[in-house]
C-alpha cells in the first residue's frame, strides 16, 4: 500500500509498466472523484437554496436568474411578423376543452358586468360589451397551447387588443411595459409584456365557435393570446391596467415562467 503513494512521487521513467499503470490510474481516479464530488456538492448547494421569493416561489433563485436571462434571450425573436399558424375552420374543435375555473365563481352577475380600464388614478373607463363589440371583429383559428403540454385547435372571435387601444385612445398607456388584467372577483390575474399584448393575434375575445363565450370560457370577455401559454389567456376580464413594473401574475407566483411566451 505504501508503495502506491510513494510511486506517485517517482518520475514515470523510473517506474515499471505495472507501477506506471497503478500511478496513472490512482491520479485519474482521484481527479474523477474530486470532480464528481464537486458536481454533487453543486447540486446539493442548488437544492439548499431557499425557493421563496416575490416572483416564482418554488423555484430556486439561481434557476430563476437563468430563466430570466432565457426570457430576454428568446424575446429577441418576438415579432409581430411571427404569427401562430392559422388553421381552416374545419379543423376547429367543437368540444373545446375547459381547463380551469379560477375567477369564474363568486355569484357573477352578467347584467352588471363592465370592463374597467384604469388609465390613471381616478381616470377609469367603464365599457359595456356592446362598446367592445362595435369595434372591428377579428377571428382566429389556432392551436391553443396549454402549459401542461396539450394543445387544441380552437376558433375565437373578438377585437384585436391593438385595435381596441387605438379606438379608446390608450396609446399613451401602452407605452408602458406591462398590461395587467384581473377577473371581476380578482381571484385570477395575469401580467403581460406590452409587445406581446400588442401582437396582431392578441384578442379581447367574446366569441367561441361563432357563439357568445360560454360561462366556463369566461363570458362575457376573455383574453386570447396565441403567443403565450393558455395560463395567460385570462377568462372573464374585469379590470385592465398598465404598469412599468410587472403586474402580479397568478401562475408566476406559483413558480411558472412570467413571460410564458411561445
Amino acid at each position: 500500500m505504501a508503495n502506491f503513494f510513494k510511486n506517485l512521487f517517482v518520475r514515470n521513467s523510473k517506474l515499471t509498466t505495472d507501477q506506471l499503470i497503478v500511478k496513472k490510474t490512482i491520479i485519474s481516479f482521484f481527479f474523477f472523484f474530486l470532480l464528481s464530488g464537486a458536481a454533487f456538492w453543486g447540486w446539493k448547494w442548488l437544492q439548499g437554496q431557499s425557493s421563496d421569493g416575490a416572483f416564482g416561489s418554488g423555484i430556486k433563485p439561481p434557476l430563476r436568474t437563468v430563466l430570466n436571462k432565457n426570457e430576454k434571450f428568446f424575446n429577441n425573436w418576438l415579432s409581430d411578423k411571427h404569427l401562430a399558424k392559422a388553421f381552416p375552420l374545419s379543423a376547429a374543435a367543437k368540444n373545446v376543452r375547459v381547463n380551469g375555473d379560477l375567477g369564474l365563481g363568486n355569484n357573477f352577475d352578467p347584467a352588471t358586468w363592465k370592463l374597467y380600464v384604469i388609465k390613471a388614478k381616478g381616470d377609469t373607463l367603464a365599457l359595456t360589451l356592446d362598446d367592445i363589440k362595435k369595434l372591428p371583429k377579428t377571428e382566429i383559428i389556432f392551436d391553443f397551447k396549454c402549459i401542461e403540454g396539450w394543445s387544441q385547435v380552437t376558433h375565437w372571435g373578438g377585437v384585436k387588443f391593438s385595435d381596441f387601444v387605438k379606438a379608446y385612445g390608450l396609446t399613451a398607456e401602452t407605452s408602458m411595459k406591462y398590461l395587467g388584467l384581473n377577473t371581476p372577483d380578482e381571484e385570477y390575474y395575469v401580467g403581460i409584456d406590452m409587445p406581446s399584448a400588442m401582437h396582431p393575434q392578441t384578442l379581447l375575445c367574446y366569441e367561441m365557435n361563432g357563439q357568445p363565450l360560454p360561462m366556463n370560457q369566461g363570458y362575457p370577455l376573455r383574453l386570447i393570446i396565441p403567443v403565450k401559454y393558455g395560463i395567460k389567456s385570462i377568462k372573464r376580464i374585469g379590470t385592465m391596467y398598465f404598469d412599468n413594473e410587472r403586474p402580479p401574475d397568478y401562475w408566476a407566483e406559483r413558480g411558472y415562467d412570467y413571460f410564458s411566451g411561445l
Partner: peptide
Amino acid sequence: LAEGMAYHFVFMW
C-alpha cells in the same frame, strides 16, 4: 410541472 420546466430550461444550455 413548474419546477420541471425551470430545471429543464436551465440545464438545456
